[in-house]
Design a protein around this nucleic acid. Structure first.
Ligand SMILES: [Zn+2]
Ligand SMILES: [Zn+2]
Ligand SMILES: [Zn+2]
Ligand SMILES: [Zn+2]
Lengths: 175, 175
DNA sequence: ATGACGTATGTTATGTTATAACAATTGCTG
DNA sequence: CAGCAATTGTTATAACATAACATACGTCAT
């Protein structure tokens, strides 16, 4: 019944880590939706049906999801939703910090720490597509320092790191 | 007539720095084209007319340029080129490391250090659009360290930093 | 409750970015 | 010149995103 959820109490295993293959993903989705409800209520933002539905679809797995992929799953069997419906929901969720946009992929992924105001760093596996969010102070520090040296003030960093996750690297090695 | 151009001898003022308002940009273009010629010759890659022309257009200024913007300037007055022409040239230039793609903007910018194999970091001014390339070891190090801690191997980092350049920040301040 | 207002969603059309597929041309080499 | 690979031309379409206007829905003052 708590309205305020402390960051440490929710989804702690996913910050900067890739999810285990057999993890309880229903739990991930559940936590994400509860956090969203709580955050929106605090702020007086309206988490409507469409928006909740889109958030749920973004959280279908730990890979970034495209807007048109969401669109396909959004319709009520016979009635297909239109692009603006999805894009407006995504815009809302981005504004509330509930999801992030992955620029490299024109796709969206659920935020694992929506209570904090941040721009995350993303680890994107080129093999399995799994994507983890990092919140690394040292990366932020290095970026701000490097930019400062050029007289530049960073406001919105985009850090998207394509590579291989541990699981896929070991496959490459042994296979 | 030197075929090999040492990195230190060309465009040294632009690495990690924003260009001065009144700088000799024809020189920037000239250097970029000469480097491109030299690099392609070394590698046996063919810098054809179309490719050189596109590279020149990417270098028209120090802001990322979209493919369709290039397209507009590519035609020979009455004959408009088609998208694949531009995209194929961009693909070649990317493969040779002569340009970079800015994912946030779906746009392309000339590389200021094409002799080195690298993924740069980009400082993108939200006000004037000027974009500078950074090659900061400490950012790279922090990124690889942070990713390693999550068992992730970074192969292709995208670092695009939107903010305010020194000039625009001072305008904001004083204006 | 009723109307007025602001927010959210539906709907249609279009804009923007990128690629697939195949034909024609060019440059090189035997 | 013939043969071959690389490049460019051409047509069509895919993928991603937004503009503009209509309709519905929630909230509040009357
Ligand atoms: Zn999960
Ligand atoms: Zn996040
Ligand atoms: Zn210049
Ligand atoms: Zn570069």
């Amino acid at each position: 019944m708590s309205r305020k959820v402390s960051p440490a109490s929710v989804a702690p295993a996913l910050l900067g880590a890739f999810p285990e293959p057999g993890h309880d993903h229903a739990h991930c989705v559940d936590v994400a939706l509860k956090q969203a409800e709580s955050i929106c209520q605090e702020r007086g933002a309206r988490l409507t049906d469409v928006r909740r539905r889109v958030l749920e679809l973004v959280w279908r797995n730990h890979r970034p999801v495209g807007a048109y992929e969401i669109l396909e799953h959004l319709g009520n069997s016979r009635k297909r939703a239109q692009p603006p419906t999805v894009y407006r929901a995504l815009e809302f969720l981005l504004a509330q910090g509930l999801i992030h946009r992955i620029e490299r992929l024109n796709a969206y992924i659920g935020c694992t720490a929506p209570e904090r105001d941040h721009d995350g760093q993303f680890l994107i596996c080129r093999d399995c597509g799994a994507t983890a969010e990092l919140l690394d102070r040292r990366i932020d520090t290095a970026i701000h320092a490097g930019a400062s040296a050029a007289g530049f003030t960073v406001e919105h960093p985009t850090v998207e790191l394509e590579g291989l996750c541990a699981k896929c690297r070991s496959h490459d090695h042994h296979g």
